[in-house]
């Protein structure tokens, strides 16, 4: 038979290895989702079977009894605010570092980048006491500012690198057209820097949404907590009812997964661009 190549075993094995590894990533989430539909007796009797009925009672309980929607809204508000603030503050600084360097500006840049890996455990102790003196414990503001401080260095690193690639001529033309500092940012830097700004916004959103330690310490009242922190209350409250736990975990996971479906291209490329985690 001319033109037909024999099937090599190599690629087939690789593909199978991919499938097995892939299954290990899908299975826990699928397990979580499917068991969220079961009753507790059914869960213990047939853990690995598909649910007999797909009833949404457990999810409804999360809303009516645990009021998880309050925590979801808290998470959403805190994450969105962190994204907006980090983008605004980071963009201003990154524009200066990339396009308006002054004497010693590189030194300032390096110090900012160095602060990227300062562990939150260290800064949280004094901040907790500072916030409680100011009466800011149990307010979203406390968490938003912490998230902003933690997010600025990576944001500046990513945006500065990207803004440097914007041609100087465009900025100069904008100046000739009478643009001031903010005019250039609005008409040149923001529109041309959008891809990097989107990558950074995605990272900040996910990191703030998923962050655990900072909101755990700063938000002690259930109705002020983010959903990830509320999960620890949920898991201990429903200790003997795993299906309820699964329903709560599923609800808390869904926003991140939806976001990933839409923005995964940015995320995966962002890892290579700034090596951010």
């Amino acid at each position: 038979m001319p033109g037909r190549k024999p099937l090599k075993p190599g690629p087939v094995l690789v593909f199978l290895a991919f499938l097995v590894l892939g299954a290990s990533f899908v299975f826990p989430f699928l397990y979580m989702f499917l068991n969220a539909f079961k009753s507790t007796p059914e869960y213990y009797k047939s853990t690995f079977k598909l649910p007999e009925h797909y009833n949404w009672a457990n999810f409804a309980t999360m809303v009516s009894q645990f009021r998880i929607q309050v925590n979801m809204l808290n998470s959403l508000f805190i994450s969105m605010s962190a994204v907006l603030l980090t983008t605004a503050v980071g963009m201003l600084a990154a524009y200066v570092f990339a396009k308006r360097p002054f004497r010693k500006s590189h030194a300032v840049y390096l110090v900012i980048i160095f602060s990227m890996f300062m562990p939150n455990q260290v800064t949280l102790i004094p901040l907790y006491f500072l916030y409680s003196k100011l009466g800011l414990i149990n307010t979203p503001f406390a968490v938003i500012i912490c998230s902003l401080a933690a997010g600025i260095p990576a944001c500046i690193m990513l945006l500065t690198a990207y803004f440097k690639g914007i041609p100087d001529e465009i900025c100069e033309a904008a100046i000739l057209d009478g643009c001031g500092f903010f005019g250039i940012i609005r008409n040149v830097i923001f529109p041309l820097g959008k891809p990097a700004i989107a990558v950074n916004a995605t990272f900040v959103f996910l990191r703030t949404w998923n962050d655990f330690l900072t909101p755990l310490v700063l938000l002690t009242k259930r109705e002020t907590q983010t959903v990830v922190v509320a999960l620890s209350a949920l898991v201990s409250r429903y200790q003997s009812d795993p299906p309820y736990q699964m329903a709560g975990l599923t609800i808390a996971t869904i926003p991140a997964i939806v976001m990933y479906l839409f923005l995964q291209k940015y995320l995966v490329e962002g890892v290579n661009a700034g090596s951010i985690k």
């Binding site: 605004a88 600084a93 200066v96 002054f102 102790i125 401080a149």
Partner: peptide, 30 residues
Amino acid sequence: ELTISLLGIAPAVLVLLVFRAYPIGSVIWN
């Protein structure tokens, strides 16, 4: 021009000073 540049990085520097540098100094002292 320099003043404008400095004002541009001021918010970032201020946030990092209050919410990163101050706590680190405070932890070391405490």
